[in-house]
Amino acid sequence: MIRFDRVAKRYPPGIDALSALSFEMTAGDMLIVSGHSGAGKSTLIKLVAAIEKPTSGAVLVGGQNVGTLSRSALPFLRRRLGLVLQDQKLLFDRSVFENVMLPLSIIGFPPKEAMQRVRAALDKVGLAMREKALPIALSGGEQQRLAIARAVVSRPALLLADEPTAHLDAETAADVARIFHEFHRAGVTVLIATYDGHLFPDARTLRLDHGCSVA
């Protein structure tokens, strides 16, 4: 599903976020990328989602080299991913329901069926009763779950998450981790960059240190 082949990413002025990183994950895998702050976890997620391009090496997602994708091909890659970013990127002027509806509007889902899907996704993350609320009225944990609902509503084969449990108390973090486990068990390939590796004890872990993989 994902293959990194000697991937390096250098940000100006010469800061290496990733150096010659190689790893592979197959469909249905769950991989935890752990490491200290600045180890290159977020960069790795951004490279998979083609938010950043590698300086050298190849990032293959579903057999496609995403580093060489044209601008017009990007949307079609992103539609196959579920993306939970560190800063969530929720739209605060839209209700919970409308936030989750957005990915389905983008792919042109028929409204009636889309509404059912949105309700199913909100139900899955335990926000069914809050669909009319604005994100600002949600707690940190609820906002995180909203971001997850939005990421999974189009039922992607690959779910990417960057620090999904950051700033959450232990109980809420465990709750969010449980949701990811559920999606993994349902067959979704899950790649999580997290500082809280212990929340996913059964998952394979890729440990990063200053942009390099360590055993």
């Binding site: 539609r79 196959r80 792919i107 189009s154 039922r155 084969a157 068990r185 349902a186 979704v188």
Partner: peptide, 25 residues
């Protein structure tokens, strides 16, 4: 419900099922 998630997870391109309506929607 779980099996539905798996099926769709493996073929996520829900949009391709409704190409006729996409333009209007």
């Amino acid at each position: 419900e779980r099996s539905a998630w798996i099926t769709d997870a493996q073929s996520p391109d829900g949009c391709l099922k409704f190409p006729m309506n996409i333009w209007l929607v």
